[in-house]
Design a binder for these strands. Structure first.
Length: 461
DNA sequence: CTTAGGG
DNA sequence: CCCTAAG
């Protein structure tokens, strides 16, 4: 059952649309990002990408401001100039993506699979030194025997720089039981096909680099519930195929080297960003994505491929794939390398402002459970643990595994809430917290501060 | 690793 | 949100 995604989208009458709504996906770093708030319109950009991936779009009002939050090319310098970013000189991609989509996996039984539909975008504008590769996602989880369980996420474009002109899509389908390592390999395969070799993939969830390749996606928290911005891939120089960067910490010998290495450098890490937006799925008119054929190769760690899933490269797919001019390491090597301490750039966690409802839930939880070290405390890890993998809170269901409000962050939020409640309203920023809640914060804080100094027996009475 | 607290 | 001392 193979259905090209684009065709599917045509049949749903969602095309064409104005590129204007690309604006919707431009995240501003202010407190109230509205990226997630318009699911009906947010489904559009990706579909347009489907059709217009070859179109130049340098006129879009992209903001650079967001650049570091999502795209720290490396960790050492957030205020980098655009020159520091990897660019891709030469022609852009001209590949027409074949068979965008997924295959309904009959052999997978009821095992949930996580599918990501990504778009790599890059600029072919040689002047646009501020652009880089970015992956956007169309994220789907489905169970092959229950099409009603399909939930789909449309991807949207995020910009890294001021211009953005070419797109290349690829699709990844991977079971949640697969390992992070296999996910990396899958993305690697797809990206290598498009960009050429000499690269290596890093996986970032919530901005945190996932280094343990042995864990499964489920264990790591990569799942269909991931929120917007949850999953990123970083594109990094592969040390095995290219000379290491000058100051790579893994290569202490080079630290003292005075030898200029202008043209042999490998590209700095680039984050391939994935943006999800949930949308309503109609199992009747919204069949699962079609298969990308050899793009989605089976992996040792993955569930076995269904028999009907072609392993060999079909002529059509192959032609389409090689149509993209391979951007090899040499092309990338023109870019001045960022002086990063480690190629495994540790990206700052994406800011996730607490909503008022979350604040309310937190206040309510602390009112009931208290702060401090008590075993029933809101911020006591053991008392709130769901599982050791993520440290999510159990006491308050608002903060379930779908969120990333770990006890540490909840603790921090409580701290800032107390601070917020103490300062004047004029000094406050972000989404206003109702005064009523702030009053409760102060009251609760005072109460538990007092209780904390008392022995437990007093509290029980 | 957890907790608390400063940055 | 990050970092880390102290337990």
């Amino acid at each position: 059952m193979t259905l090209p995604l684009c065709t599917n989208h045509v049949s749903r009458g969602s095309f064409p649309a104005s590129w204007d709504d690309v604006k919707l996906v431009i995240r501003d770093d202010d407190e109230n990002s509205s990226v997630c708030t318009q699911p009906s319109t947010m489904t559009m950009p990706f579909r347009k990408i489907c059709y217009k991936r070859q179109r130049s779009q340098r006129d879009y009002p992209f903001k650079k401001k967001k650049l570091y939050d999502h795209s720290s090319v490396s960790n050492s310098d957030r205020g980098t100039s655009s020159k520091d970013m990897t660019t891709f000189p030469g022609k852009g991609f001209s590949c027409d993506a074949p068979g965008l989509g997924a295959t309904m996996n009959r052999a997978s039984g009821t095992s949930a699979r996580v599918a990501g539909h990504y778009t790599i975008s890059q600029s072919k504008d040689s002047h646009a030194s501020g652009t880089a590769v970015r992956v956007t996602g169309h994220y789907t989880k489905f169970q092959s025997k229950d099409s009603h369980g399909i939930r789909a996420y449309d991807g949207v474009i995020h910009t890294l720089g001021s211009s953005l002109s070419e797109f290349q899509s690829f699709f990844i389908e991977i079971p949640e039981s697969a390992t992070v390592g296999s996910l990396k390999r899958r993305v690697m395969e797809a990206v290598t096909t498009i960009l050429g070799g000499g690269l290596r993939i890093g996986v970032l969830l919530q901005g945190k680099k996932l280094r343990n390749d042995e864990k499964t996606l489920l264990q790591t928290g990569i799942c269909h519930d991931n929120k917007l911005d949850a999953l990123c891939f970083s594109l990094e120089p592969s040390l095995s195929q290219a000379p290491p960067p000058l100051c790579h910490e893994d290569c202490p010998f080079l630290l003292t080297s005075d030898t200029p290495q202008p043209l042999t450098r490998v590209p700095a890490p680039v984050v391939l960003h994935n943006v999800f937006q949930q949308r309503t799925s109609d199992p009747l008119t919204d069949p699962p994505l079609a298969n990308l054929g050899n793009f989605v190769e089976s992996d040792h760690d993955s569930a076995p491929s269904p028999p009907e899933m072609p392993i060999d490269k079909s002529p059509v797919d192959s032609r389409a794939l090689v149509a993209a001019p391979a951007l090899n390491v040499e092309a990338l090597a023109m870019v001045p390398l960022r002086k990063s301490k480690q190629s495994e750039a540790v990206q700052r966690r994406i800011r996730q402002p607490f909503s008022v409802s979350e604040v309310e839930a937190l206040v309510q939880a602390v009112e009931k459970l208290g702060t401090g070290r008590g075993t029933k405390s809101m911020f006591n890890r053991k008392a709130n643990l769901i599982d050791a993998q993520n440290g999510m809170m159990l006491n308050c269901r608002v903060f379930d595994s779908a969120t990333h409000r770990t006890y540490v962050y909840l603790k921090d939020k409580w701290k800032t809430l107390v601070h917020t409640a103490r300062i004047s309203p004029q000094q406050r920023r972000g989404e206003p917290v109702p005064q009523e809640l702030l009053d409760r914060v102060l009251t609760t804080h005072a109460y538990w501060s007092q209780q904390q100094s008392k022995p437990e027996t007093c509290r029980l009475l």
